[in-house]
């Protein structure tokens, strides 16, 4: 197995990914960087790339980054596991969960 470089990193701030960028759609316009109330993101040092999630621990899931994005699908929510909802199918009684 090819060995990947292992770094001495502290535990990653959790939750680390309040949103997920789709690099195929995102053109790095940084609208989300601007509309975020609390500066969760910074622009990517590489122009045209999706922003960097710098302060995920300050994210309040306000939603402006996703809802104000000019390119639908470029950025989507990613609820922390413990915040994912449960629901029930009325016809079958099966309990389902946001497990995408």
């Amino acid at each position: 197995m090819p060995q990947k470089q292992i770094y001495a990193l502290p535990n990653i701030v959790s939750p680390a990914n309040p949103v997920i960028f789709n690099p195929d759609i995102c053109n790095g316009c940084n609208t989300c960087v601007e509309v975020c109330q609390i500066d969760v993101f910074i622009p990517n040092p590489e122009k045209g790339k999706p922003p960097v999630i710098l302060h995920p621990d300050e994210c309040w899931y306000g939603g402006c980054c996703v809802n104000h994005c000019p390119l639908p699908g470029a950025i989507s929510f990613n609820w922390p596991v413990q915040q994912r909802a449960y629901w029930k199918d009325k016809a079958t009684g099966k309990v389902l969960r946001d497990s995408q």
Partner: peptide, 24 residues
């Protein structure tokens, strides 16, 4: 309402359909 659009959108994306499903 406020921060709720992310809930309706992401729940729907995850398969929630209010015509069929009861929300806990």
């Amino acid at each position: 309402e406020s921060t709720t659009k992310n809930i309706t959108n992401s729940y729907e994306k995850a398969g929630f359909n209010p015509a069929k499903h009861l929300l806990m």
